[in-house]
């Protein structure tokens, strides 16, 4: 896991540059990188489409989609993703807003806490979970615990995205303006702050989708049949269907990343492409 950010907008006016010829080394490394990216995808796509020697089709995909285990595991992961997004936003948007508005000196502490999920890898979190179960024994028997843990996995990205979003607007002035016309705290938050940081929120939510749909470590160790656990299970028994699932999973990653990219395009902000996959 790691955290990262890179602005995904076109570089500023470089008209003069583009007229010069590209460097040979730049093209060489770019092509090599593209090959490294594409060859495994091409290979797994070929596997997933190979029905017989020299014959290709969507047979394995059809089998996967007909498998009731596929839909149940996929829907479980999707439900967990939506729950994780909801909890993350309800918890983090008011918190980050409040810190920016009222307690800016708390920001270094928040930064520190937001790094912690990197320091404590998912497998270690599972090891320590028995402590939480001692406090709330009921959590042990429900898949809800996964969504609660995924909020922690997504925390670094959610926090960073919202923090950057709030920094880009003048939280204080907006709040004072809203309150001077009689808006309450909650109205200010919902109708003034949220619309202004919606691209940061959407970016964080798409990344959460990518994280949760691929999460294997916690769900497999806690014995829940999420989508990634299902993919692993199929991989042990059906190689061709597993290849089809790898492609489906790759497309899901594209949906999430493409979402972030589009959000940045349509809102005009410098949204960040971020990395949060659980390996």
């Amino acid at each position: 896991m790691a955290a990262v950010s890179v602005a995904a907008t076109a570089p500023s006016a470089r008209g003069a540059r583009s007229r010069r010829r590209p460097s040979v080394w730049a093209v060489f490394w770019l092509v090599l990188g593209a090959l490294y990216f594409l060859v495994p995808l091409y290979s797994v796509a070929q596997f997933s489409l190979e029905v017989g020697p020299g014959r290709y089709g969507f047979h394995w995909y059809a089998q996967i989609f007909a498998d009731p285990q596929f839909s149940s595991s996929f829907l479980l992961s999707l439900r967990l993703a939506l729950e994780t997004m909801a909890i993350s936003m309800v918890l983090m948007v008011p918190t980050v807003y409040w810190v920016h508005l009222k307690i800016p000196r708390l920001r270094p502490t928040m930064d520190m806490i937001a790094i912690l999920p990197f320091v404590v890898p998912p497998v270690a979190l599972v090891v320590g979970l028995s402590g939480v179960f001692d406090v709330f024994p009921a959590l042990l028997s429900s898949s809800q615990i996964l969504a609660l843990m995924y909020v922690i996995l997504a925390l670094p990205f959610t926090y960073r995205s919202l923090d950057a979003g709030m920094r880009a607007i003048d939280v204080k002035t907006l709040t004072e303006a809203a309150q001077s016309v009689g808006s309450s705290w909650w109205r200010t938050l919902l109708f003034v702050i949220v619309p202004n940081v919606r691209s940061a929120m959407l970016g964080a939510m798409f990344l959460t989708l990518a994280i949760v749909m691929g999460e294997y470590t916690i769900s497999s160790l806690l014995l829940y049949n999420t989508f990634a656990v299902y993919i692993y299970y199929i991989g042990n028994t059906e190689a061709y269907q597993a290849a089809a699932l790898a492609i489906i999973s790759f497309l899901l990653t594209w949906v999430a990343m493409g979402g972030i990219f589009l959000v940045s395009r349509f809102t005009g902000g410098r949204q960040q492409v971020q990395i949060g996959a659980t390996r």
């Binding site: 790691a2 990262v4 890179v6 602005a7 995904a8 990216f37 495994p40 995808l41 290979s43 797994v44 990518a210 691929g214 999460e215 294997y216 990634a228 993919i231 692993y232 991989g235 597993a242 290849a243 699932l245 790898a246 999973s249 790759f250 990653t253 594209w254 999430a256 990343m257 493409g258 972030i260 990219f261 492409v273 971020q274 990395i275 949060g276 996959a277 659980t278 390996r279």
Partner: peptide
């Protein structure tokens, strides 16, 4: 940067299969 975002996030079980 978009492709890198995808590649860096495409990991775990499906990557092993690929």
């Amino acid at each position: 940067s978009t492709f890198s975002g995808v590649a860096a996030n495409f990991a775990g079980i499906p990557l092993a299969f690929a």
